[in-house]
Nucleic acid binder design. Structure first.
Lengths: 252, 252
DNA sequence: GTAGACCCTGACGTAACGTCAGGGTCAAGG
DNA sequence: CCTTGACCCTGACGTTACGTCAGGGTCTAC
């Protein structure tokens, strides 16, 4: 089961090449491959594709879309709500543009020349400009965000899968310690915390111990991040935070 | 008088580079240059830019836009009416997309997976696909149209100015003969008609005598083309047609 | 009359695919 | 069981619509 590229392509009115491209850049890699190497898209993949297409319609670059959707704090519901708002805005903007066309029609028919400023009003406040900041506020906005943006821009499909694998490895190891009843200030937990820090440092932005501690606090306080750990093991976010703080203390 | 690139850019919310680009490809060359070489955009240029931006918003490629607007039969009023229709269609499509987002929201909140077909309906019938044909019917649609498309695709700014110059030269010469009272079957008129045919042959598509005669008829019957000649001299369209027919007869 | 803001023309870079080329895969039918 | 036509794969280069310098003139305001 699962649809082939061609089927998905005609379903979503995109080209096969587009799906290949999205796979190449790691934006949408089908969850399955046949033994012959054929891509097979499942329901989840289709849902992801739909998201991508909404963002694309709104003028987001593929790189931005990838960054938003790969973000550990990405939330589908919230994204959909934002997309709804932005699509409505765009609809309103289109309305203005229609008015502008009608004004131009009236003016041309009447032989009048209308004010230059009015002619281009509708082209002004475009979606990306207006909402990019919102997306940033919501999904980024930290001081190190710019650096992270810059680096992740070039990441390939393989990079993303490795990032995911490395992250999950640490999470699993940390959860295992929790299961064993190992306290969060145990050296083994601290080592894992350090590894976690180095991963961020390596993949996203220079992550000092201070920043790492800040991150740890956010893991507990911000439900978007917390969920990412809580879904592995209840209480893991808090455990991580403690391990991170102990590790920072040890490093002094 | 006339605005500089920077002024137009901020007015229309496009980059300076975009205006340079449009100039390079001959899509929008400002009607004036300062002695220092500065571009100066007048009211007509702004109106053209607005047209271009409407077409662009509708998903037309710059090459297509150039071809539409350089067409001798291009009519601003009609273009505006078409744009209005297309913008309204796009608005409706956006409405469907909003519905799709809301459906996705409901499904996600309710934990349901919805039908794959419904998910992508809104992405289907896109403007360019749907209306490209209309534009073709209206502005092209002749048998030789494809060839014309293919060739004009690569034309640069210089090409277009030369095409325009050559065309106007023939028109002016033809009008001069008319003014002198020279009959339309005079050899001089036939020579000009032949030159006219060769110009089309050279720049747009292989133009046989038969096709040329057909064109001549259209110049009289189709007001879009007729206007292009009538504005040079009243009666020129008819005069051209006669000269073209006589020339075709002579060539036999 | 000179500084700072703005403009010019190349020329190379980039994003998001389009478009082959060369070669496997797969389900239906003989 | 094997073939055949429709479909898929991975490179790799092409295209569109600009972005982004670099190196150098222009213009106006103090």
């Amino acid at each position: 089961m699962g649809l082939t590229v061609g089927e998905v392509a005609s379903l979503a009115s995109v080209s096969v090449r587009t799906l290949h491209h999205y796979d190449d850049i790691g934006l949408l890699s089908p969850s399955e491959r046949s033994e012959g190497g054929y891509r097979h898209y499942g329901d989840d993949d289709l849902a992801t594709l739909q998201q991508v297409l909404f963002f694309r319609e709104l003028g987001f670059g593929l790189g931005d879309i990838a960054r938003i959707m790969h973000d550990p704090s990405f939330d589908r519901l919230e994204a959909l709500r934002m997309q709804r708002r932005m699509l409505k805005d765009k609809s309103a903007q289109l309305g203005h543009m229609i008015e502008a066309v009608e004004a131009a029609l009236d003016a041309t028919e009447g032989g009048v020349t209308l004010d230059a400023k009015d002619m281009f009003e509708a082209f002004g406040d475009f979606d990306p400009k207006k909402h990019e900041k919102e997306a940033e506020d919501r999904w980024g906005g930290t001081p190190a965000y710019a650096e992270s943006m810059r680096r992740t821009k070039r990441y390939t499909k393989e990079d993303w899968t490795q990032i995911k694998a490395e992250g999950e490895a640490v999470n699993a190891a940390m959860a295992a310690l929790m299961d064993e009843g190992v306290p969060s200030d145990d050296p083994r937990a601290l080592d894992l915390a350090e590894e976690h820090r180095l991963q961020i440092d390596k993949w996203f932005y220079p992550c000092s111990q201070e920043i790492h501690v800040g991150l740890g606090q956010m893991y507990v306080m911000d439900p978007r991040f917390a969920q990412n750990y809580e879904k592995v093991r209840v209480g893991l976010a808090q455990y991580m935070r403690e391990a991170i703080e102990a590790n920072a203390e040890r490093a002094k």
